[in-house]
Simulated assay, not measured.
Amino acid sequence: MHHAALPASSVFTARHSLRWLVAVGLLALLTACGFRLKGQTPLPFQTMYTNIAENSAFGAQLRRVIRATSPNTRFVEDPKEAQVRLTQLSLTRDLEEVSISVEGQVEVYELSVTIVFQLTDAEGHILLAPTTLGTTREIPYDSGALQAKQGEIGSLYVEMQQSLIDRMVRRITSPEVMKAYENADTLPIDESQVQNDNAPVQDDDLGIDRDLLRMPNMNPTSSFY
């Protein structure tokens, strides 16, 4: 006895439906195991205060990334209204000579950005101890293209700060920090926070010292604030 063959379109539809059901089932299984789509890690707190100025490029981008990562988290201007405080302890940008020609002219500069920060809850419990993150880049120097090099340095600093922001957010949204927040009562308290409202720190957004690039033989290390 011969069975009639199914139309090709029916076979395609059946296979497509099967694949869709398998995909849905796999996604459901991953979700049950705690899997989240890349880019979003909802935090267990709804309000955050940071002393990193919102009107700086660094502060504005940091807020955008945290909001995108944890849509249920919003920033507040009054630290007393926040469930957690993200405190910038320091932020430095350095430009250092790493290679000098036989004529005494700078051939290569090394750029670096370093931030030190911590995360505490409303009572001052330390959820993330003071943490230092840094990044460096090297850039060839050409005294005949000063303006172009200054623009390139500015662009590199922007890329480096974005890298630091991404790393900061990964630390803040790590399972360790979430667990610390849930068990904050067992953690030590930062007494300095209890006595300080962490007023916003200002930042001049990548100010480039033109005199430094015109005078390559000056003190090799300078901070940008």
Rank of each mutant, 00 (worst) to 15 (best):
Q61C: 00
T132Q: 14
N55P: 06
E103T: 14
S163G: 08
E77V: 01
A148L: 15
S90H: 07
V65I: 11
P44I: 09
Q147S: 08
I153Y: 00
V169M: 06
G151D: 10
I66N: 06
V106T: 14
T50H: 11
K38L: 12
L156M: 11
M160L: 10
M160V: 06
P140I: 09
G34I: 01
A53H: 09
R171Q: 14
T69Q: 04
F45S: 03
Q88K: 09
L164T: 03
Q147L: 15
Q83K: 04
E138S: 10
Q147G: 00
D166F: 01
S155Q: 12
L86R: 05
R36E: 08
Q61H: 13
A57K: 13
N72E: 10
P44C: 10
I66F: 05
E54S: 12
I153L: 04
Q83L: 02
E159Y: 00
E152Y: 02
G124V: 00
P130V: 04
P71S: 03
F35M: 04
S163E: 13
E152W: 02
T50P: 11
I172R: 00
L37M: 10
D78H: 09
L133N: 07
N55Q: 13
L43C: 07
V84I: 12
E77G: 14
G59P: 04
S143A: 14
G134W: 09
F45D: 04
R67Y: 00
D94H: 14
R167A: 15
A129I: 05
N51Q: 05
S101W: 06
N55G: 04
E159Q: 14
E96Q: 15
A60Q: 09
L128P: 02
A53Y: 07
A60H: 12
G134M: 07
Q61F: 11
A122Q: 10
E107G: 01
T73F: 00
I100M: 13
P71T: 03
T47A: 09
V76T: 11
R167H: 12
A122K: 13
E107R: 14
G59K: 02
A129T: 13
R74K: 10
I52C: 07
D94I: 06
G151T: 09
R74E: 04
V108P: 01
P130L: 08
N51I: 02
G34C: 06
M48V: 10
S101E: 03
E54D: 08
D78N: 15
V108E: 10
Q83G: 11
G154N: 09
E103K: 15
D121M: 05
Q83N: 01
E77R: 09
L43K: 07
Y49M: 04
Q46R: 14
M160G: 04
Q161G: 00
L37V: 15
T114Q: 12
A60D: 07
A148T: 10
T131K: 08
T73I: 01
R137E: 13
V116M: 11
N72Q: 15
A60S: 11
V76P: 05
R170Q: 15
E77S: 15
P71N: 06
L164Y: 03
L37Y: 12
E107T: 08
T47S: 13
S56R: 07
